[in-house]
Design a protein around this nucleic acid. Structure first.
Lengths: 253, 253
DNA sequence: TTAAGGGTTTACGTAACGTGAATGTCAATA
DNA sequence: TATTGACATTCACGTTACGTAAACCCTTAA
Protein backbone atom coordinates (compact mmCIF):
# COMPACT_ATOMS: atom_id res chain seq x y z
CA UNK A 1 0.00 0.00 0.00
CA UNK A 2 1.25 3.45 -0.93
CA UNK A 3 -0.19 6.71 0.31
CA UNK A 4 0.04 10.36 -0.68
CA UNK A 5 -0.13 13.04 2.01
CA UNK A 6 -3.87 13.32 1.59
CA UNK A 7 -4.49 9.60 1.83
CA UNK A 8 -2.35 9.11 4.87
CA UNK A 9 -3.83 12.19 6.47
CA UNK A 10 -7.34 10.88 6.01
CA UNK A 11 -6.33 7.49 7.30
CA UNK A 12 -4.80 8.88 10.45
CA UNK A 13 -7.13 11.81 10.93
CA UNK A 14 -4.49 14.52 10.66
CA UNK A 15 -3.89 17.37 8.21
CA UNK A 16 -1.56 17.32 5.25
CA UNK A 17 0.21 20.28 6.79
CA UNK A 18 1.01 18.15 9.79
CA UNK A 19 2.57 15.49 7.59
CA UNK A 20 4.70 18.06 5.81
CA UNK A 21 5.71 19.51 9.11
CA UNK A 22 6.73 16.08 10.39
CA UNK A 23 8.81 15.68 7.26
CA UNK A 24 10.38 19.09 7.80
CA UNK A 25 11.46 18.31 11.34
CA UNK A 26 12.49 14.83 10.20
CA UNK A 27 10.11 13.08 12.53
CA UNK A 28 8.37 11.15 9.77
CA UNK A 29 9.83 11.20 6.29
CA UNK A 30 8.12 9.66 3.26
CA UNK A 31 9.41 6.38 1.94
CA UNK A 32 10.22 8.06 -1.36
CA UNK A 33 9.51 11.08 -3.51
CA UNK A 34 7.99 10.36 -6.90
CA UNK A 35 8.98 11.92 -10.19
CA UNK A 36 6.65 14.89 -9.66
CA UNK A 37 8.02 15.64 -6.22
CA UNK A 38 5.07 14.09 -4.35
CA UNK A 39 5.62 12.47 -0.96
CA UNK A 40 4.84 8.76 -1.03
CA UNK A 41 4.42 6.83 2.24
CA UNK A 42 4.52 3.06 2.73
CA UNK A 43 3.55 0.55 5.38
CA UNK A 44 6.55 1.28 7.56
CA UNK A 45 5.59 4.95 7.72
CA UNK A 46 2.00 4.10 8.61
CA UNK A 47 3.18 2.10 11.60
CA UNK A 48 5.63 4.75 12.67
CA UNK A 49 2.95 7.42 12.46
CA UNK A 50 0.72 5.40 14.72
CA UNK A 51 3.44 5.26 17.33
CA UNK A 52 4.09 8.97 16.97
CA UNK A 53 0.42 9.72 17.56
CA UNK A 54 0.38 7.55 20.66
CA UNK A 55 3.21 9.59 22.07
CA UNK A 56 1.62 12.84 20.99
CA UNK A 57 -1.57 11.85 22.78
CA UNK A 58 0.45 11.69 25.98
CA UNK A 59 1.53 15.29 25.47
CA UNK A 60 5.15 14.49 24.73
CA UNK A 61 6.86 17.17 22.58
CA UNK A 62 7.62 16.07 19.02
CA UNK A 63 11.33 16.66 19.53
CA UNK A 64 11.35 14.18 22.39
CA UNK A 65 9.33 11.69 20.40
CA UNK A 66 12.04 11.84 17.77
CA UNK A 67 14.70 11.18 20.38
CA UNK A 68 12.84 8.32 21.92
CA UNK A 69 12.07 6.59 18.67
CA UNK A 70 15.51 7.00 17.20
CA UNK A 71 17.26 5.77 20.32
CA UNK A 72 19.09 2.50 19.71
CA UNK A 73 17.47 1.14 22.87
CA UNK A 74 14.00 1.77 21.44
CA UNK A 75 11.77 -1.24 21.79
CA UNK A 76 8.39 -0.77 20.19
CA UNK A 77 6.49 -3.27 22.26
CA UNK A 78 7.94 -2.14 25.55
CA UNK A 79 7.20 1.43 24.60
CA UNK A 80 3.62 0.48 23.97
CA UNK A 81 3.32 -1.11 27.38
CA UNK A 82 4.61 2.13 28.76
CA UNK A 83 1.97 4.02 26.80
CA UNK A 84 -0.64 1.80 28.26
CA UNK A 85 0.48 2.53 31.80
CA UNK A 86 0.49 6.24 31.13
CA UNK A 87 -2.92 6.17 29.53
CA UNK A 88 -4.23 4.37 32.59
CA UNK A 89 -2.65 7.09 34.72
CA UNK A 90 -4.40 9.65 32.60
CA UNK A 91 -7.68 7.91 33.09
CA UNK A 92 -7.21 7.86 36.83
CA UNK A 93 -6.49 11.56 36.71
CA UNK A 94 -9.63 12.09 34.69
CA UNK A 95 -11.63 10.20 37.27
CA UNK A 96 -10.35 12.57 39.91
CA UNK A 97 -11.37 15.55 37.81
CA UNK A 98 -14.80 14.11 37.21
CA UNK A 99 -15.26 13.57 40.91
CA UNK A 100 -14.11 17.13 41.44
CA UNK A 101 -16.72 18.44 39.03
CA UNK A 102 -19.37 16.43 40.77
CA UNK A 103 -18.28 17.75 44.12
CA UNK A 104 -18.29 21.27 42.79
CA UNK A 105 -21.83 20.85 41.55
CA UNK A 106 -22.87 19.54 44.94
CA UNK A 107 -21.06 22.43 46.57
CA UNK A 108 -22.85 24.91 44.32
CA UNK A 109 -26.13 23.42 45.36
CA UNK A 110 -25.15 23.88 48.97
CA UNK A 111 -25.08 20.18 49.65
CA UNK A 112 -21.49 20.28 50.81
CA UNK A 113 -18.63 22.72 51.15
CA UNK A 114 -15.20 22.53 49.60
CA UNK A 115 -12.00 24.10 50.76
CA UNK A 116 -10.11 26.17 48.23
CA UNK A 117 -7.42 23.52 48.09
CA UNK A 118 -9.98 20.86 47.28
CA UNK A 119 -11.24 22.91 44.39
CA UNK A 120 -8.03 22.33 42.50
CA UNK A 121 -7.58 18.70 43.40
CA UNK A 122 -7.58 17.14 39.95
CA UNK A 123 -5.49 19.83 38.33
CA UNK A 124 -2.51 19.59 40.61
CA UNK A 125 -2.11 15.90 40.05
CA UNK A 126 -1.68 16.73 36.43
CA UNK A 127 1.03 19.19 37.24
CA UNK A 128 2.95 16.55 39.07
CA UNK A 129 2.45 14.14 36.19
CA UNK A 130 3.68 16.68 33.69
CA UNK A 131 6.74 17.43 35.74
CA UNK A 132 7.47 13.79 35.97
CA UNK A 133 7.03 13.48 32.28
CA UNK A 134 9.42 16.30 31.59
CA UNK A 135 12.15 15.52 34.03
CA UNK A 136 11.74 11.86 34.75
CA UNK A 137 11.98 10.67 31.20
CA UNK A 138 15.29 8.82 31.34
CA UNK A 139 14.44 7.50 34.76
CA UNK A 140 11.28 6.03 33.38
CA UNK A 141 13.15 4.59 30.42
CA UNK A 142 15.37 2.77 32.85
CA UNK A 143 13.00 1.83 35.58
CA UNK A 144 9.91 1.40 33.47
CA UNK A 145 9.62 -2.22 34.47
CA UNK A 146 9.72 -1.36 38.13
CA UNK A 147 6.92 1.09 37.71
CA UNK A 148 4.73 -1.46 36.08
CA UNK A 149 5.49 -3.82 38.90
CA UNK A 150 4.63 -1.19 41.46
CA UNK A 151 1.32 -0.53 39.80
CA UNK A 152 0.50 -4.18 39.79
CA UNK A 153 1.39 -4.56 43.44
CA UNK A 154 -2.01 -3.16 44.22
CA UNK A 155 -3.32 -6.57 43.51
CA UNK A 156 -0.75 -8.37 45.60
CA UNK A 157 -2.99 -9.23 48.42
CA UNK A 158 -3.61 -12.03 45.99
CA UNK A 159 -0.87 -14.55 45.58
CA UNK A 160 1.24 -14.39 42.47
CA UNK A 161 -0.45 -17.36 40.79
CA UNK A 162 -3.90 -16.11 41.66
CA UNK A 163 -3.08 -12.82 40.08
CA UNK A 164 -1.78 -14.43 36.93
CA UNK A 165 -4.81 -16.63 36.73
CA UNK A 166 -7.26 -13.79 37.22
CA UNK A 167 -5.51 -11.68 34.60
CA UNK A 168 -5.48 -14.55 32.15
CA UNK A 169 -9.15 -15.16 32.80
CA UNK A 170 -10.02 -11.53 32.18
CA UNK A 171 -8.23 -11.68 28.86
CA UNK A 172 -9.91 -14.91 27.89
CA UNK A 173 -13.30 -13.44 28.72
CA UNK A 174 -12.62 -10.44 26.53
CA UNK A 175 -11.50 -12.63 23.64
CA UNK A 176 -14.33 -15.10 23.89
CA UNK A 177 -16.86 -12.37 24.32
CA UNK A 178 -15.64 -10.51 21.25
CA UNK A 179 -15.92 -13.64 19.10
CA UNK A 180 -19.32 -14.52 20.48
CA UNK A 181 -20.56 -10.98 19.95
CA UNK A 182 -19.73 -11.19 16.26
CA UNK A 183 -21.88 -14.30 15.95
CA UNK A 184 -24.62 -12.29 17.61
CA UNK A 185 -26.36 -14.96 19.62
CA UNK A 186 -26.11 -14.81 23.46
CA UNK A 187 -27.34 -18.39 23.68
CA UNK A 188 -24.54 -19.69 21.46
CA UNK A 189 -21.96 -22.08 22.79
CA UNK A 190 -19.28 -19.43 22.66
CA UNK A 191 -21.38 -16.85 24.50
CA UNK A 192 -22.19 -19.39 27.19
CA UNK A 193 -18.50 -20.16 27.49
CA UNK A 194 -17.90 -16.46 28.07
CA UNK A 195 -20.53 -16.44 30.79
CA UNK A 196 -18.91 -19.45 32.39
CA UNK A 197 -15.48 -17.84 32.29
CA UNK A 198 -17.02 -14.77 33.83
CA UNK A 199 -18.33 -16.87 36.67
CA UNK A 200 -14.89 -18.32 37.23
CA UNK A 201 -13.45 -14.84 37.26
CA UNK A 202 -16.04 -13.72 39.78
CA UNK A 203 -15.14 -16.57 42.09
CA UNK A 204 -11.83 -14.88 42.73
CA UNK A 205 -13.68 -11.98 44.28
CA UNK A 206 -16.75 -13.48 45.79
CA UNK A 207 -16.59 -15.91 48.62
CA UNK A 208 -19.98 -17.33 47.72
CA UNK A 209 -21.63 -17.67 44.35
CA UNK A 210 -25.32 -17.25 43.70
CA UNK A 211 -27.04 -17.21 40.34
CA UNK A 212 -29.13 -14.24 41.39
CA UNK A 213 -26.14 -12.16 42.34
CA UNK A 214 -24.38 -13.08 39.12
CA UNK A 215 -27.41 -12.12 37.05
CA UNK A 216 -27.78 -8.90 39.03
CA UNK A 217 -24.17 -8.00 38.44
CA UNK A 218 -24.68 -8.59 34.73
CA UNK A 219 -27.53 -6.10 34.78
CA UNK A 220 -25.33 -3.66 36.61
CA UNK A 221 -22.81 -3.94 33.81
CA UNK A 222 -25.43 -2.36 31.60
CA UNK A 223 -26.74 0.21 34.06
CA UNK A 224 -23.48 1.47 35.46
CA UNK A 225 -21.60 3.76 33.12
CA UNK A 226 -18.21 2.76 34.41
CA UNK A 227 -18.76 -0.85 33.52
CA UNK A 228 -20.63 -0.19 30.34
CA UNK A 229 -17.80 1.95 29.01
CA UNK A 230 -15.35 -0.81 29.85
CA UNK A 231 -17.18 -3.56 28.04
CA UNK A 232 -18.38 -1.48 25.12
CA UNK A 233 -14.95 -0.20 24.25
CA UNK A 234 -14.47 -2.33 21.16
CA UNK A 235 -18.03 -2.88 20.07
CA UNK A 236 -20.99 -0.97 21.47
CA UNK A 237 -23.60 -3.35 22.74
CA UNK A 238 -21.16 -5.78 24.29
CA UNK A 239 -22.31 -5.02 27.83
CA UNK A 240 -25.89 -5.87 26.91
CA UNK A 241 -24.73 -8.96 25.10
CA UNK A 242 -22.82 -10.18 28.11
CA UNK A 243 -25.81 -9.51 30.33
CA UNK A 244 -28.07 -11.54 28.07
CA UNK A 245 -25.59 -14.37 27.92
CA UNK A 246 -25.27 -14.44 31.70
CA UNK A 247 -29.01 -14.28 32.17
CA UNK A 248 -29.35 -17.32 29.94
CA UNK A 249 -26.45 -19.00 31.70
CA UNK A 250 -27.90 -18.50 35.15
CA UNK A 251 -31.50 -18.98 34.10
CA UNK A 252 -32.37 -15.84 36.09
CA UNK A 253 -34.14 -12.88 34.48
CA UNK B 1 -8.92 34.94 52.09
CA UNK B 2 -6.64 37.04 49.93
CA UNK B 3 -3.97 35.72 47.64
CA UNK B 4 -0.99 37.13 45.78
CA UNK B 5 -0.03 35.66 42.39
CA UNK B 6 2.33 33.24 44.03
CA UNK B 7 -0.20 32.02 46.57
CA UNK B 8 -2.96 31.52 44.07
CA UNK B 9 -0.55 29.90 41.65
CA UNK B 10 0.55 27.40 44.27
CA UNK B 11 -3.03 26.75 45.25
CA UNK B 12 -4.13 26.03 41.71
CA UNK B 13 -0.95 24.47 40.44
CA UNK B 14 -0.23 27.05 37.74
CA UNK B 15 2.57 29.56 37.18
CA UNK B 16 2.52 33.21 38.15
CA UNK B 17 3.14 34.00 34.50
CA UNK B 18 -0.12 32.29 33.65
CA UNK B 19 -1.98 34.44 36.14
CA UNK B 20 -0.47 37.62 34.73
CA UNK B 21 -1.32 36.44 31.24
CA UNK B 22 -4.92 35.79 32.26
CA UNK B 23 -5.03 39.29 33.65
CA UNK B 24 -3.57 40.67 30.43
CA UNK B 25 -6.19 39.01 28.24
CA UNK B 26 -8.83 39.96 30.79
CA UNK B 27 -9.83 36.39 31.46
CA UNK B 28 -9.17 36.59 35.19
CA UNK B 29 -8.48 39.96 36.76
CA UNK B 30 -7.44 40.41 40.38
CA UNK B 31 -10.00 41.68 42.85
CA UNK B 32 -7.81 44.70 43.53
CA UNK B 33 -4.30 46.08 43.22
CA UNK B 34 -2.63 47.01 46.49
CA UNK B 35 -0.59 50.12 47.21
CA UNK B 36 2.61 48.53 45.90
CA UNK B 37 1.00 47.49 42.64
CA UNK B 38 0.60 43.84 43.65
CA UNK B 39 -2.28 41.78 42.27
CA UNK B 40 -4.59 40.63 45.04
CA UNK B 41 -7.14 37.87 44.41
CA UNK B 42 -10.18 37.02 46.52
CA UNK B 43 -12.63 34.17 46.89
CA UNK B 44 -14.57 35.08 43.79
CA UNK B 45 -11.43 34.86 41.68
CA UNK B 46 -10.51 31.50 43.18
CA UNK B 47 -13.85 30.08 42.09
CA UNK B 48 -13.63 31.64 38.67
CA UNK B 49 -10.15 30.24 38.16
CA UNK B 50 -11.39 26.79 38.99
CA UNK B 51 -14.02 27.07 36.29
CA UNK B 52 -11.46 28.37 33.81
CA UNK B 53 -9.22 25.41 34.47
CA UNK B 54 -12.09 23.01 33.96
CA UNK B 55 -12.67 24.49 30.54
CA UNK B 56 -8.98 24.57 29.77
CA UNK B 57 -8.75 20.89 30.61
CA UNK B 58 -11.27 20.24 27.86
CA UNK B 59 -8.97 21.96 25.38
CA UNK B 60 -11.17 25.00 24.86
CA UNK B 61 -9.21 28.11 23.74
CA UNK B 62 -8.96 30.82 26.39
CA UNK B 63 -10.70 33.29 24.15
CA UNK B 64 -13.74 31.03 23.96
CA UNK B 65 -13.66 30.45 27.70
CA UNK B 66 -13.91 34.18 28.14
CA UNK B 67 -16.90 34.33 25.80
CA UNK B 68 -18.66 31.48 27.48
CA UNK B 69 -18.18 32.78 30.99
CA UNK B 70 -19.11 36.35 30.20
CA UNK B 71 -22.24 35.37 28.32
CA UNK B 72 -25.38 36.60 30.09
CA UNK B 73 -26.85 33.13 29.66
CA UNK B 74 -23.94 31.63 31.57
CA UNK B 75 -25.09 29.31 34.30
CA UNK B 76 -22.29 27.96 36.42
CA UNK B 77 -23.97 24.80 37.57
CA UNK B 78 -25.29 23.91 34.15
CA UNK B 79 -21.87 24.53 32.70
CA UNK B 80 -20.42 22.14 35.22
CA UNK B 81 -22.86 19.44 34.27
CA UNK B 82 -21.71 19.99 30.71
CA UNK B 83 -18.10 19.65 31.83
CA UNK B 84 -18.95 16.42 33.46
CA UNK B 85 -20.47 15.03 30.29
CA UNK B 86 -17.47 16.05 28.27
CA UNK B 87 -15.04 14.60 30.74
CA UNK B 88 -16.95 11.34 30.57
CA UNK B 89 -16.67 11.52 26.80
CA UNK B 90 -12.99 12.04 27.15
CA UNK B 91 -12.71 9.03 29.36
CA UNK B 92 -14.57 6.89 26.86
CA UNK B 93 -12.20 8.09 24.19
CA UNK B 94 -9.28 7.19 26.42
CA UNK B 95 -10.70 3.73 26.89
CA UNK B 96 -10.76 3.31 23.13
CA UNK B 97 -7.16 4.40 22.90
CA UNK B 98 -6.14 2.02 25.66
CA UNK B 99 -7.89 -0.80 23.87
CA UNK B 100 -6.07 0.25 20.72
CA UNK B 101 -2.70 0.12 22.47
CA UNK B 102 -3.50 -3.30 23.80
CA UNK B 103 -4.51 -4.48 20.36
CA UNK B 104 -1.35 -3.06 18.90
CA UNK B 105 0.75 -4.93 21.45
CA UNK B 106 -1.11 -8.11 20.61
CA UNK B 107 -0.59 -7.41 16.93
CA UNK B 108 3.13 -6.88 17.48
CA UNK B 109 3.32 -10.20 19.20
CA UNK B 110 1.61 -11.76 16.22
CA UNK B 111 -1.45 -12.69 18.20
CA UNK B 112 -3.72 -10.80 15.84
CA UNK B 113 -3.55 -8.55 12.82
CA UNK B 114 -4.85 -5.03 12.45
CA UNK B 115 -5.86 -3.17 9.33
CA UNK B 116 -4.27 0.21 8.77
CA UNK B 117 -7.59 1.86 9.48
CA UNK B 118 -7.88 0.08 12.82
CA UNK B 119 -4.47 1.35 13.80
CA UNK B 120 -5.84 4.86 14.06
CA UNK B 121 -9.12 4.02 15.69
CA UNK B 122 -8.86 6.06 18.87
CA UNK B 123 -7.30 9.07 17.27
CA UNK B 124 -10.01 9.76 14.77
CA UNK B 125 -12.72 9.85 17.38
CA UNK B 126 -10.80 12.65 18.93
CA UNK B 127 -10.77 14.53 15.67
CA UNK B 128 -14.52 14.32 15.49
CA UNK B 129 -14.80 15.47 19.08
CA UNK B 130 -12.53 18.41 18.42
CA UNK B 131 -14.51 19.42 15.38
CA UNK B 132 -17.65 19.21 17.35
CA UNK B 133 -16.05 21.32 20.03
CA UNK B 134 -15.01 23.97 17.57
CA UNK B 135 -18.09 24.20 15.42
CA UNK B 136 -20.82 22.86 17.61
CA UNK B 137 -20.32 25.27 20.45
CA UNK B 138 -23.44 27.37 20.17
CA UNK B 139 -25.47 24.31 19.36
CA UNK B 140 -24.31 22.76 22.56
CA UNK B 141 -25.06 25.90 24.47
CA UNK B 142 -28.62 25.70 23.27
CA UNK B 143 -29.26 22.02 23.34
CA UNK B 144 -27.11 21.17 26.34
CA UNK B 145 -30.08 19.98 28.30
CA UNK B 146 -31.10 17.57 25.62
CA UNK B 147 -27.69 16.09 25.59
CA UNK B 148 -27.73 15.49 29.28
CA UNK B 149 -31.10 13.89 28.96
CA UNK B 150 -29.86 11.63 26.22
CA UNK B 151 -27.00 10.49 28.36
CA UNK B 152 -29.26 9.76 31.24
CA UNK B 153 -31.58 7.78 29.07
CA UNK B 154 -29.15 4.94 29.34
CA UNK B 155 -30.57 4.34 32.74
CA UNK B 156 -34.16 4.56 31.64
CA UNK B 157 -34.86 0.91 31.71
CA UNK B 158 -35.44 1.92 35.31
CA UNK B 159 -38.50 3.96 36.03
CA UNK B 160 -38.05 7.64 36.68
CA UNK B 161 -38.54 7.37 40.43
CA UNK B 162 -36.24 4.42 40.69
CA UNK B 163 -33.59 6.36 38.93
CA UNK B 164 -33.99 9.35 41.20
CA UNK B 165 -33.86 7.13 44.22
CA UNK B 166 -30.76 5.28 43.12
CA UNK B 167 -28.98 8.52 42.32
CA UNK B 168 -29.92 9.99 45.67
CA UNK B 169 -28.74 6.87 47.42
CA UNK B 170 -25.39 6.95 45.65
CA UNK B 171 -24.90 10.53 46.78
CA UNK B 172 -25.89 9.74 50.32
CA UNK B 173 -23.46 6.87 50.40
CA UNK B 174 -20.65 9.12 49.25
CA UNK B 175 -21.47 11.73 51.86
CA UNK B 176 -21.90 9.34 54.73
CA UNK B 177 -18.81 7.45 53.75
CA UNK B 178 -16.72 10.59 53.64
CA UNK B 179 -17.83 11.64 57.12
CA UNK B 180 -17.33 8.16 58.53
CA UNK B 181 -13.89 7.93 56.96
CA UNK B 182 -12.80 11.05 58.78
CA UNK B 183 -13.75 9.48 62.09
CA UNK B 184 -11.64 6.53 61.05
CA UNK B 185 -13.59 3.65 62.56
CA UNK B 186 -15.33 1.21 60.18
CA UNK B 187 -17.38 -0.12 63.10
CA UNK B 188 -18.76 3.32 63.93
CA UNK B 189 -22.46 4.05 63.65
CA UNK B 190 -21.86 6.28 60.64
CA UNK B 191 -19.77 3.72 58.82
CA UNK B 192 -22.38 1.06 59.44
CA UNK B 193 -25.00 3.42 58.10
CA UNK B 194 -22.92 3.79 54.94
CA UNK B 195 -22.76 0.00 54.63
CA UNK B 196 -26.51 -0.21 55.05
CA UNK B 197 -27.11 2.46 52.42
CA UNK B 198 -24.80 0.56 50.16
CA UNK B 199 -26.90 -2.54 50.62
CA UNK B 200 -30.02 -0.57 49.70
CA UNK B 201 -28.27 0.75 46.64
CA UNK B 202 -27.25 -2.76 45.64
CA UNK B 203 -30.82 -3.97 45.90
CA UNK B 204 -31.62 -1.89 42.86
CA UNK B 205 -29.26 -4.02 40.84
CA UNK B 206 -29.42 -7.40 42.46
CA UNK B 207 -32.52 -9.47 42.47
CA UNK B 208 -31.38 -11.40 45.49
CA UNK B 209 -29.24 -10.27 48.41
CA UNK B 210 -26.69 -12.41 50.15
CA UNK B 211 -24.24 -11.32 52.80
CA UNK B 212 -21.50 -13.28 51.13
CA UNK B 213 -22.01 -11.62 47.78
CA UNK B 214 -22.13 -8.22 49.44
CA UNK B 215 -18.89 -8.88 51.31
CA UNK B 216 -17.31 -10.22 48.15
CA UNK B 217 -18.26 -7.15 46.21
CA UNK B 218 -16.71 -5.03 48.93
CA UNK B 219 -13.46 -6.89 48.48
CA UNK B 220 -13.71 -6.36 44.76
CA UNK B 221 -13.94 -2.63 45.39
CA UNK B 222 -10.41 -2.88 46.73
CA UNK B 223 -9.02 -5.30 44.16
CA UNK B 224 -10.45 -3.84 41.00
CA UNK B 225 -8.72 -0.70 39.84
CA UNK B 226 -11.81 0.81 38.30
CA UNK B 227 -13.70 0.69 41.55
CA UNK B 228 -10.78 1.60 43.73
CA UNK B 229 -10.13 4.73 41.72
CA UNK B 230 -13.77 5.68 42.03
CA UNK B 231 -13.97 5.36 45.77
CA UNK B 232 -10.50 6.66 46.55
CA UNK B 233 -11.01 9.83 44.58
CA UNK B 234 -11.41 12.10 47.55
CA UNK B 235 -9.41 10.29 50.17
CA UNK B 236 -7.12 7.36 49.42
CA UNK B 237 -8.05 4.42 51.57
CA UNK B 238 -11.79 4.91 51.24
CA UNK B 239 -12.25 1.72 49.25
CA UNK B 240 -10.58 -0.29 52.01
CA UNK B 241 -12.57 1.54 54.62
CA UNK B 242 -15.83 0.72 52.88
CA UNK B 243 -14.80 -2.89 52.53
CA UNK B 244 -14.04 -3.13 56.25
CA UNK B 245 -17.33 -1.47 57.14
CA UNK B 246 -19.28 -3.87 54.91
CA UNK B 247 -17.41 -6.85 56.27
CA UNK B 248 -18.40 -5.83 59.77
CA UNK B 249 -21.93 -5.10 58.61
CA UNK B 250 -22.36 -8.47 56.97
CA UNK B 251 -20.39 -10.38 59.53
CA UNK B 252 -18.54 -12.10 56.67
CA UNK B 253 -14.76 -12.01 56.30
C1' DT C 1 22.33 48.19 54.75
C1' DT C 2 22.23 44.47 52.72
C1' DA C 3 20.60 40.25 50.99
C1' DA C 4 16.75 37.23 50.06
C1' DG C 5 12.56 36.66 48.23
C1' DG C 6 8.66 38.44 46.84
C1' DG C 7 6.36 41.76 43.34
C1' DT C 8 6.15 44.62 38.59
C1' DT C 9 6.44 45.64 33.23
C1' DT C 10 8.45 44.95 28.74
C1' DA C 11 9.72 42.10 25.25
C1' DC C 12 11.49 38.45 22.69
C1' DG C 13 11.33 33.12 22.12
C1' DT C 14 8.90 28.69 21.32
C1' DA C 15 5.95 24.70 19.70
C1' DA C 16 2.95 22.84 16.49
C1' DC C 17 0.86 23.72 13.40
C1' DG C 18 -3.11 27.02 10.40
C1' DT C 19 -3.51 29.72 6.58
C1' DG C 20 -2.59 31.95 2.54
C1' DA C 21 0.09 32.84 -1.93
C1' DA C 22 2.28 31.40 -5.92
C1' DT C 23 3.06 27.57 -8.70
C1' DG C 24 3.31 22.68 -10.74
C1' DT C 25 0.85 18.01 -11.97
C1' DC C 26 -2.71 14.86 -13.36
C1' DA C 27 -7.11 12.97 -15.10
C1' DA C 28 -11.28 13.87 -17.05
C1' DT C 29 -14.09 16.52 -19.98
C1' DA C 30 -15.74 20.33 -23.43
C1' DT D 1 -6.29 20.36 -27.63
C1' DA D 2 -7.43 23.29 -24.09
C1' DT D 3 -9.35 23.86 -19.95
C1' DT D 4 -10.98 22.74 -15.44
C1' DG D 5 -10.74 20.98 -10.76
C1' DA D 6 -8.55 18.54 -7.47
C1' DC D 7 -4.54 17.26 -6.20
C1' DA D 8 0.56 18.30 -5.11
C1' DT D 9 4.71 21.57 -4.02
C1' DT D 10 7.53 25.44 -1.41
C1' DC D 11 7.91 29.74 0.93
C1' DA D 12 6.52 32.57 4.63
C1' DC D 13 3.91 34.93 7.93
C1' DG D 14 0.26 34.36 11.84
C1' DT D 15 -1.43 32.24 16.18
C1' DT D 16 -2.00 30.40 20.96
C1' DA D 17 -0.50 30.08 25.60
C1' DC D 18 2.57 30.70 27.78
C1' DG D 19 8.46 30.34 29.21
C1' DT D 20 12.19 33.08 30.03
C1' DA D 21 15.18 36.94 30.72
C1' DA D 22 16.09 41.81 31.66
C1' DA D 23 15.57 45.71 34.43
C1' DC D 24 13.49 47.41 38.23
C1' DC D 25 10.61 48.12 42.87
C1' DC D 26 8.93 46.60 47.87
C1' DT D 27 9.26 44.26 52.30
C1' DT D 28 11.38 41.92 55.93
C1' DA D 29 14.82 39.55 58.66
C1' DA D 30 19.81 39.46 59.71
Amino acid sequence: MEYTVQHLGKLAGISTRTLRYYDEIELLMPARINSSGYRIYGQHEVDRLQQILFYRELGIPLEQIKDIMSSPAYDGTRALMNHREQLLDKRRQLDILIANVEQTIASNEGRLTMTNAEKFEGFKKKLIDDNEQTYGKEIREKYGDDQINKSNQKLQNMTQEQHEEVTRLAEEIAETLAKAFKQGNPASELAQKAADLHKQWLMFYWSAYSKEAHAGLAQMYVDDERFKAYYDVNQPGTAEFLRDAIHIYTGVH
